[in-house]
Amino acid sequence: MISTKSITKAYGSRRALDDVSIFVPEGSVYGLVGPNGAGKTTLLGILAGLRHPDSGAVDIGAPRSRIAVLPDTPQFEPWLTAREVVDLARNLAAPDVPVDRVGEVLVEAGLEDSIDVRVGGFSRGMLQRLGLAATVIGEPQVLLLDEPSAALDPGGRREVLDLVTRLRGRSTVMFSSHILGDVQEVCDTVGILREGRLLFQGSLDELLVGRVGAVYRIRLRGTDEAVVQSLRDSPWVQLVEQVAASDLRVTADGREGAERNLVKVLADNDAAVISISPEGANLEDVFLELTS
């Protein structure tokens, strides 16, 4: 469990965090999103114990030795091998973990071909994988990840997301990301920061519900002008857009009217319907709306 109460942090006259209170349930995955300079790294630094808040309280339900942090561009001594880096992390964070686990973790991180190679020649993506391996070897109770997939190719990104998913329930994970799709995919809870203030905190459902308009996408087999006209004539329809020849986007004035009448209009026109689906709001839309 992680919680902060009204924490504030200023660098000179600029407030990096302003009255931020977060709550991360134990074993959950918390996504921290916000534009550059929003205060994400400062918040993660405070949670890691690397920075001190000017005011407010931080409560992390784990000893400091069980908190692991992965910066966005991990770096290691270039003259160490990958195995030595992870073994150092093991020795410092969890000396009880058997040495054999070092190799296993490196294989899991996709570095099986570079285990005994010095890290000076590693690409940024390889360093990120190595950073993850060095982080999970300690079996942390709390894992703080700063942009963990930013430098990775799609395969590496997938592995990171899978790793975070696997950690759910075992570790409390907080990660910041600019890739909102990643946050939407793996996080139970989302916090949106802007200019040091927490604009929203809650589950994705809470964030997205209420922002979903009564908008429906309809795919027909072939073009059917009669259907389009009937929809436009319906009193509960606000707008009908023909996105493509056989692809309609219907905006209703409310869900109830659409749910009661949409299918009926299509049936009355004997339309060949391939699919009907409500158009959902996504995190990116909401993020832009909140932070703009």
Binding site: L50, S65, A68, P71, Q75, L92
Partner: peptide, 14 residues
């Protein structure tokens, strides 16, 4: 002198 390396050590060595 290097933030990322310092993070690695400071979060593991209390």
């Amino acid at each position: 002198s290097r933030y990322e390396m310092a993070v690695f050590l400071r979060t593991r060595v209390m």
